[in-house]
Design a binder for these strands. Structure first.
Lengths: 230, 230
DNA sequence: CAGTAAATCAACAATGTTGTTGATATGCTT
DNA sequence: AAGCATATCAACAACATTGTTGATTTACTG
C-alpha cells in the first residue's frame, strides 16, 4: 500500500538534542504519518521511532506501551482535526452556533485528504469508552446538539445517533471512494455525489428547508411525539 | 479484550482425517470466531490453525498467505450474512422486492450479535476494489436499487451513497454501542434509538411516508432535478 | 562549576509470526 | 491390492516486535 511516499530515508545516527516535548511531538507526528499510510494494524513502535529519528527506547519512555501510543496519536489527530474544522474557535459553551455547512465542508476536506487517518481516528474514538474526551468529538457534538435544539432543525432528532452517522459517513466514504477510483477526477466526483446525497438527506430529514431559502425548500413537517434529544 | 469466551482448550494432537473441504470450513470458521473476538489486527495464522485444530502448515496449504485468508474469511462471512438476512431467497434479478423493513431488522440483529465481525466484513468490502463480488453486498445493492427506482421511494436517491451509509450505520453503530454500555439492557436501548432515528430519517429522506400508512405520514415531496440513480 | 535528575540510547531476552520444505499418512483409482 | 496424488503435519530459518535494563549524555540548579 505504498502510496507514493517513501519513508526509508534515515541518515541521522547522531544523538538527539535533549528536548522532551519536541521528541514527543516528533513521535506523534511520525505515528500519524505511518497510521495514515498503513492503518493501525501495521503500526509498530520500531517504525515510528525510526521515522521520528528517535531511539526505540526513547519512544517507550514517552509512551509506555504500543497501545498507549496509539491512543495518544488518536487524541493528537483529534486535536489536529478540531483545528482544521473549527479553526481557533474555542469549544466554549457560549460559542456562537457555527455554520454547519462550513463545518461539513471542512470535515469532508480533511477526510478526503487523509482517509486512513480519519478512519483510524474515528475508530479509536468510537471504541473508546469516553469519546467525549476527544477534542474534536466534543466540539462537534456540542455544536450539533445546539443545532438540533434550535428552530433550524426538525424536532425529535436524536443528536447522538445523528452525529455518529454523520461522522461515519464523512470519514468512511473516502475509504470507499479511494478503493473504487484510480484518478483524482473520479474521486472528486464521488466526493461530490456524497455531498449531494447528504444534502438531500439533510433537507428531508434534518434541516427545515424553509429556513434555508438558498436551497429549494419544499418540505413541511409536523411536530413528532419523540421525546429524546439526547 | 477477552469477551468471556475461552479458546484455549486444544487437546487433540491426533492427526486429522483427510477432508479438504471440511478442513477449509474449519479454518474459516475459526478465523471468523477470532476475527469476531479480536478484530483483524489480532488475527494470526497460528491462532487460527490452533483453534481450528489444524496444523499451521495445512492452513497455509489452503490459504497461501495471511492476507488471502482474511479475504476468504470476509467472503465467507458475507455469505453467512446474506443467508441470515435474505434467507434462501436467491439474488435473482427477477426476485420480488423484499420487505426493506425486514431486511433492516435482520441486518441490525446480525450486527448487534456480531459487532466485530460485521465491522471487519464491512471494511474488507469497503476497501475491496470490487465490492460487488461479495454475495451480501451484491444482493443488498440490487435490492436497494430496485427500491430506489420504485415509486415507494423519493426521487433522486443516489443508491450507492445511500447503501454505503446504511451499511455503515447498521454495522458500526453496534461498535459504538458496545463500548458505551455495560448492560445488555443499555445496549438494547441504544439499538432502539438507532432504529428510531433511521426510521425518522427514512421517512423524511428516503421513503414516501404516504406509501407507508402504518407510520404516521406527514411529508410531501416534489420531483428533484437530480439525474443520478446510477 | 560541581552535581543531579532525566532524556536519550544500545544491547538483551523472550516471544511470535511468516513462509517454506520435506516427511508421513490417507483416501481414491485402476 | 498396489500405486498415486495430495492432504496433513513437524521442523526450520529468517525476521520483527515488544518490553526491559543499564550505560551515557545533556541540561538545569544551587
Amino acid at each position: 500500500m505504498l502510496d507514493g511516499v517513501d519513508f526509508t530515508t534515515n541518515k541521522k545516527p547522531r544523538r538527539r538534542k535533549r528536548d522532551p516535548d519536541g521528541t514527543r511531538s516528533a513521535i506523534l507526528e511520525a505515528a500519524g504519518k505511518l497510521l495514515a499510510r498503513d492503518g493501525p494494524e501495521g503500526l509498530s513502535v520500531s517504525q515510528v521511532a525510526q521515522l521520528a529519528g528517535v531511539n526505540r527506547g526513547t519512544a517507550y519512555q514517552h509512551f509506555p506501551t504500543r497501545e498507549q501510543l496509539l491512543e495518544a496519536t488518536a487524541a493528537w489527530v483529534g486535536e489536529k482535526l478540531r483545528l482544521a474544522v473549527f479553526g481557533g474557535q474555542m469549544a466554549d459553551p457560549a460559542a456562537a452556533l457555527g455554520d454547519p455547512k462550513m463545518v461539513a465542508e471542512q470535515m469532508t476536506a480533511f477526510a478526503m485528504e487523509n482517509p486512513e487517518l480519519g478512519r483510524v481516528w474515528l475508530f479509536e474514538v468510537l471504541s473508546s469508552s469516553r469519546p467525549d474526551n476527544d477534542p474534536f468529538w466534543h466540539q462537534y457534538w456540542t455544536q450539533f446538539e445546539k443545532f438540533a435544539k434550535s428552530d433550524m432543525a426538525q424536532p425529535g432528532i436524536d443528536a447522538e445517533v445523528h452525529s455518529v452517522l454523520m461522522l461515519l459517513g464523512t470519514f468512511l466514504w473516502p475509504v470507499f471512494a479511494r478503493s473504487q477510483t484510480r484518478t483524482a477526477k473520479d474521486r472528486q466526483e464521488l466526493a461530490q455525489r456524497f455531498s449531494n446525497e447528504i444534502l438531500r438527506w439533510s433537507l428531508y430529514g434534518t434541516m427545515r428547508p424553509e429556513k434555508y431559502p438558498e436551497l429549494d425548500a419544499r418540505v413541511k413537517k409536523a411536530a413528532g411525539t419523540s421525546k429524546r434529544s439526547r
